[in-house]
């Protein structure tokens, strides 16, 4: 692959990673730890919101994040013709 195109692929990859990792940080460290007291004023069902993020919500989000990453990267690989099939 020519170098400029390779750099473009890598840049797009890094941007994807950046956005996904921001979400990763916000749901766990943000909602589950730093902002837990504030969010605990709100309720969903019988859960205080901050507590829910710390014990349930962050984990569900993590799973979704990885699958979003998989779909996004498969698309990117095809776009730049570096896919494996």
């Amino acid at each position: 692959m020519p170098k400029p195109k390779m750099q473009q692929y890598w840049r797009k990859n890094l941007i994807t990673l950046f956005y996904l990792l921001v979400v990763w940080f916000v749901v766990s460290f943000g909602f589950g730890i730093l902002g837990v007291d504030y969010l605990n004023q709100f309720n969903i069902g019988g859960f205080k919101l901050g507590f829910w993020f710390a014990q349930q919500g962050s984990i569900f989000t993590f799973v979704i994040l990885i699958f979003v990453y998989v779909i996004r990267m498969n698309k990117l690989d095809k776009e730049f013709d570096v896919n494996e099939d």
Binding site: L17, L21, W24, G32, A54, I59, F62, I66, V70
Partner: peptide, 24 residues
């Protein structure tokens, strides 16, 4: 109680790092 969340988040959140930054 809430303090136990460190294990829940800690032992799952690592997989996001693994999938995005290392495994491929």
């Amino acid at each position: 109680g809430y303090d136990g969340s460190v294990y829940l988040m800690g032992w799952t959140g690592g997989y996001v790092l693994l999938a995005l930054l290392l495994a491929p």
